[in-house]
């Protein structure tokens, strides 16, 4: 009985201390990590999505809020004067969250391009979502009201062979982006107008 009790106590204390420690480390490193992610993940993705932007979407980034949801958006002005916006949405892949940067034309509600940003998918299998553009290029030109589920689930997106879970994560992220866009569009338009 004593042994049982000591097992329970030791494990509980150990995991609690470890959890607390990790939370503290996470808190202190978060701003630094966000800065790094912005520099190494979001910036290249946005440059690829808006290669012809005439402004600097990274510098003009802003947070918009509606109904308690806050979203970081990157407004862009394209070379033909059209206004666009990019933001990141998340889905769950094989190895954890998959970030998807979605660039949308504000006037037509059409997707300009999407890119995978942060992910922890298996190298060479799930990571193809980021490296091999043929998968994400399926989203380009689609309307924001299209069905972004995988074909298996009745949608329009072809899964990558051998990486169905990652494809599902990307599709989830796109659907999340849809919901965010629907909810926040008035705010985004207001933000861009400023």
């Amino acid at each position: 009985m004593r042994e049982m009790l000591s097992m329970i106590v030791v494990l509980t204390v150990l995991t609690a201390v470890s959890g607390g420690l990790l939370a503290a480390v996470e808190q202190t490193t978060r701003p630094q990590i966000e800065e790094q992610v912005l520099k190494f993940q979001k910036e290249p993705a946005i440059k690829e999505i808006f290669p012809d932007a005439t402004n600097n979407p990274i510098q003009e980034r802003a947070d918009v809020t509606a109904d308690g949801t806050t979203l970081q958006v990157f407004p862009a002005v394209l070379s033909n004067g059209k206004k666009a916006v990019a933001f990141e949405a998340k889905g769950t892949g094989f190895g954890g969250p998959v970030g998807l940067m979605v660039g949308i034309n504000i006037d037509t509600d059409e997707i300009i391009a999407v890119r995978v940003t942060t992910h922890s998918e298996t190298p060479g299998i799930g990571s193809r979502a980021k490296e091999d553009l043929s998968f994400v290029s399926q989203f380009a030109g689609k309307s924001m009201s299209a069905n972004f589920s995988l074909k298996k689930g009745g949608g329009d997106i072809d899964a990558m062979s051998g990486a169905t879970v990652t494809s599902g994560g990307v599709s989830q992220a796109a659907i999340a982006a849809q919901a965010l866009y629907k909810k926040l569009k008035p705010e985004i338009v207001k933000q861009i107008a400023n």
């Binding site: 030791v10 494990l11 150990l14 995991t15 470890s18 420690l21 990790l22 480390v25 996470e26 490193t29 630094q32 990590i33 790094q36 992610v37 520099k39 190494f40």
Partner: peptide
Amino acid sequence: ACYIVIIATFVTIVEFMMQAYTYE
């Protein structure tokens, strides 16, 4: 189990640190 908890804690700390300071 205890060893793994301890090891995993330090690994996660390393991961945060690398993310924050040596992202590439």
